[in-house]
């Protein structure tokens, strides 16, 4: 187990190294940097000065080495788009909003997704089952920015029930016994549809699978109440393969926020990601890419660990494991 984890950690580090090198080299192969002539002509001396200040005149491997040395200490440099702050400060300002959106999305997706999957499995081959299956396919197929615009067209433009966009990060609308702000509803719903569809699909097939197992049949033969069988025997075991659903959901969550934040004009990391690319803001792009790569790798590792923890039958590193 320990050896397996060490191996995984090493390969994670290798992947991060490759991702950082590739990103760095790509970013620096851009024709036209942030200080090129398109935004007004600079005197040659001033240009050279700026290049020296940002270290852009050194060979690329030196630049990479300097960058990574600082990055490991939490210093990702200065964003070209807002030179008065640091990349770290800018990310610190925006990650909270993205995390809020993400956390609510995960809650909604799991709550509704598991319920839908359970209902579908319990009413196997009925019209409810077909409806859930179709809904899952719809949710999985239609891009979230498309759903987001439909929600805006119906609930903001037509019915005028909800605001077009924005995000009350401080939650100051929560006074007077309200559980959510009205501008939270559409982003979270649109964002959660894909993970919800995945979860509903996994739950259904997993529960159907467990219901056919011997121990479920034994429980029924013993004359246990249907509800007891469902919750004590079936559901608990059906949850185990759900961990693999996480592996499918994580990438969707990580990339989905870019689109959702753009549609709803939410000032989170996803939106800064897009503006950074438009402004060729290397330090910001580098930092965000590294962050995503680290998050991605760590989340996958945690998923694997959770798998053994929940299901003692799974042995990591053993032959045939999900390495």
């Amino acid at each position: 187990m320990t050896r397996y984890l060490l191996g995984r950690l090493l390969s994670l580090l290798l992947v991060l190294f490759v991702v950082s090198v590739v990103t760095f080299v790509l970013m620096h192969s851009v024709p036209g940097g942030p200080f090129d002539e398109s935004k007004g002509r600079l005197p040659e001396a001033a240009r050279a000065n700026i290049m020296r200040k940002y270290g852009l005149d050194k060979p690329i491997y030196v630049q990479y080495w300097n960058y990574m040395k600082n990055a490991l200490r939490g210093d990702f440099g200065i964003p070209y788009q807002q030179p008065q702050t640091t990349v770290t400060a800018l990310i610190a300002k925006t990650w909270r909003i993205t995390l809020q959106v993400g956390a609510m999305t995960v809650l909604l997706a799991f709550g509704v997704g598991i319920s839908l999957g359970l209902i579908a499995a319990y009413n196997q081959n009925s019209w409810i089952d077909s409806f859930v299956t179709f809904f899952a396919m719809l949710g999985f197929t239609v891009p979230n920015f498309v759903v987001a615009l439909w929600l805006i067209l119906v609930f903001a433009v037509r019915l005028k029930w909800l605001p077009m966009g924005g995000w009350s990060a401080s939650g100051d609308c929560l006074v007077a016994g309200r559980f959510f702000c009205s501008d939270w509803i559409m982003p979270v719903v649109a964002y959660s549809l894909i993970p919800m569809a995945i979860i509903a699909r996994y739950t259904r097939s997993s529960v159907v699978d467990v219901m056919r197992q011997d121990y479920a049949r034994t429980a029924r033969a013993k004359g246990l109440h249907e509800r007891t069988i469902m919750f004590r025997h079936v559901f608990r075991n059906a949850l185990i393969p759900m961990v693999t659903a996480l592996g499918v959901i994580i990438p969707n969550l990580l990339t989905g926020s870019i689109f959702i934040e753009t549609v709803f004009r939410i000032n989170g990391m996803g939106k800064y990601f897009v503006t950074s690319i438009f402004n060729r803001d290397y330090p910001m792009i580098m930092a965000l890419f590294l962050l995503v790569a680290v998050l991605w790798g760590v989340l996958y590792l945690l998923t694997d660990i959770a798998y053994t923890w929940i299901d003692p039958r799974v042995r990591l590193g053993a032959k045939g494991g999900n390495a």
Binding site: L12, V15, T23, L26, L254, T255, I277, W296, G297
Partner: peptide, 19 residues
């Protein structure tokens, strides 16, 4: 394959297009 799947495909496309 391991390295390429260690990163969301669309993000990689965004990175390349941005360059």
């Amino acid at each position: 394959v391991e390295i390429m799947t260690a990163f969301p495909g669309i993000l990689f496309a965004i990175l390349i297009i941005s360059v």
